[in-house]
Design a protein around this nucleic acid. Sequence first.
DNA 1: ATGAATGCAAAGACTTTGCACTACT
DNA 2: AGTAGTGCAAAGTCTTTGCATTCAT
Lengths: 156, 156
Amino acid sequence: MRQSRSDSKTHALDDLAAALNAAGYRVTKPRLAVIEVVLRAGRALSIEEILTRARRLHPQVGLATVYRCIDMLDRIGCSQHVWINGKGYVSACRDERLHYHLVCRRCHTVTEVDVAVCTDALQQSMAEAGFYAQQGAIEVLGTCQACRSRIEERVG
Amino acid sequence: MRQSRSDSKTHALDDLAAALNAAGYRVTKPRLAVIEVVLRAGRALSIEEILTRARRLHPQVGLATVYRCIDMLDRIGCSQHVWINGKGYVSACRDERLHYHLVCRRCHTVTEVDVAVCTDALQQSMAEAGFYAQQGAIEVLGTCQACRSRIEERVG
DNA sequence: ATGAATGCAAAGACTTTGCACTACT
DNA sequence: AGTAGTGCAAAGTCTTTGCATTCAT
């Protein structure tokens, strides 16, 4: 039997808790709640979405803690910020190599593009320019398949 | 003799004014001032930087007008937004094909990467995913050559 | 025990909006 | 002349910060 999706996510969560500890951060309930929410989402979440979901796991989480926790995840390199219409969204970032996130403007779903496909040539261009990328993922904004179908349904 | 850099930019400005007109927008002094500033910058500017510079060309430009003008440029597809540390910056976007902007986190210089190099493979991946990109340029944040040298000088 | 992390609320930063006035077309 | 565009200031939204308290180590 294959391991279930939920098990693997729980596993990633444990790993992250260990990583926190190793990086000198304390492992607290609010932090675990926020991290779990971000990891399980499969799409970019706004801060209030994270807050709402995190409160289901640990009801007294505060807004400031969410911001502070996201900052921490950024520093560790486990999360990515996207700005969609002037508002910040956060998505998990699991692959350590530079890769692409295709982010849907409508539903905020994040599709991770297979790394090997495009990044090599880009890396080379950056090397030539002497540019050092400081992002875990490169965000491309657009519309996903599902949302496009939905739009066509309504129009057609 | 070769055409000077300034001439070519002025030319681009005229073209844009014509484009505005064609798109049904009025060509006003504040707009021209903002557009000229963004086009000439060669790097991403914050709104207040745009305001300050635009006022040198047309002193009574207001803050709201800058925001509204940038919105307009976005709609026409001539400008790009980047968020650096939670603050919005705007850069000009001249190539109509999807391409890369290497944006330096420190000096906000924008290096345009030769389109043909990487985009084909990415386009194909997006097509496979049914994803439709709605950006003129893909922004990659990092540190440029010049800023890295500057840092090394200070540290070494 | 001790200081990092938290929650709350207040302060701050950035952006948008309403409205009377200006100036393109 | 008519209306899109403007400037100002007020309102709105998102984010950060100060401080007393809690909790992980």
